[in-house]
Amino acid sequence: MTTTRHPAASVTSHPAASVASYPADRVGGTRAMLGALAVAGPLWAAVSLTQAATRDGFDLTRHPLSLLSTGALGWLQITNFVLAGILLLIGATGLRRTITSRWAPRLVRISGAGMLAAGVLVMDPADGYPIGTPAGMPATMSWHSIGHMAAGSVTFIALIAACYVLARHFRAAGAGGTAVAGAIAGTALLAGDTWAMTGSPAGSATLAVGAITAMCFLTAAALHTRR
């Protein structure tokens, strides 16, 4: 006896299947992961800027946000970095389940790991902060300060690349506005980081603006994907 195969049975599913095709519990888990990615940037920015505005002796035009991890209240910024890193790692899995791009989730995951490492590896006090620290940069850096710089570089490079890769993904998907936002966010972080690395005036502020812009673009990307 021969059997007739229904035409639909020959259709192969897309490697990045829509969330709607998952079981209900998996859909809920994926939406929660994308929610974690959406929260990461605004939470990190709000906690960082609140501390920058209220810490005695901290000047955003001179001091990077990472320097908030030093001093008596440094644990707040350490926790902020670690939590943001964990949220990015979780969110990367949500992206992997829902978009066709292979590299965007990987880059978000790398930036999350870098953020987490940057939180654990604390900068040395520098340039008058915390209050009582000599002006200027320290003559030598501790191993954890060197590790922080390396982790920060990895985070920024991966985050810049993630913005551009996501911009390309959304452009191909017909989401022009989100694609433009991604390109702007990646460029903002690239320009802010470059300006800061040259030692130009207010470099810490431009870097902060770029990092916050890129992190918050991930919020827009997550919300767009979550819909």
Rank of each mutant, 00 (worst) to 15 (best):
A118M: 05
G112P: 11
G132D: 12
M115N: 02
S142L: 10
H144L: 13
M123P: 14
M137T: 04
H144G: 01
Y129L: 03
A113M: 10
G128V: 07
L121F: 10
P134G: 06
L121S: 01
V122D: 06
P138G: 10
P130I: 15
G114I: 05
T133W: 02
M123R: 07
I110T: 13
M115D: 00
L121Y: 05
V120C: 10
M137F: 09
V122I: 15
S142V: 06
M115Y: 00
I110H: 06
V120K: 06
V122R: 04
P125Q: 04
S111A: 14
T140Q: 14
G132Y: 13
P138E: 11
L116H: 01
I131T: 14
H144A: 05
M141S: 15
I110P: 01
T140D: 13
M123V: 14
L121N: 03
M115A: 07
P130M: 14
G114D: 05
T140G: 08
A113Q: 03
A135W: 05
A113V: 13
L116G: 01
A139Y: 00
T140Y: 05
M123A: 08
M141D: 12
T140E: 13
G112Y: 05
A113T: 06
V120H: 03
S111F: 02
M141C: 02
P138S: 10
G132F: 09
P134D: 07
M115S: 06
G119W: 05
M137D: 12
G114P: 01
G128E: 07
M115Q: 08
M137Q: 11
M141N: 09
G132K: 09
V122M: 08
D127I: 04
P134Y: 08
V120L: 14
T140K: 11
A113G: 10
P125R: 03
S145G: 10
P130F: 14
S145L: 01
A113N: 00
D124G: 08
A118F: 02
W143G: 13
V120A: 12
M115V: 01
G128R: 04
A139I: 02
A135G: 03
A113L: 14
A135E: 09
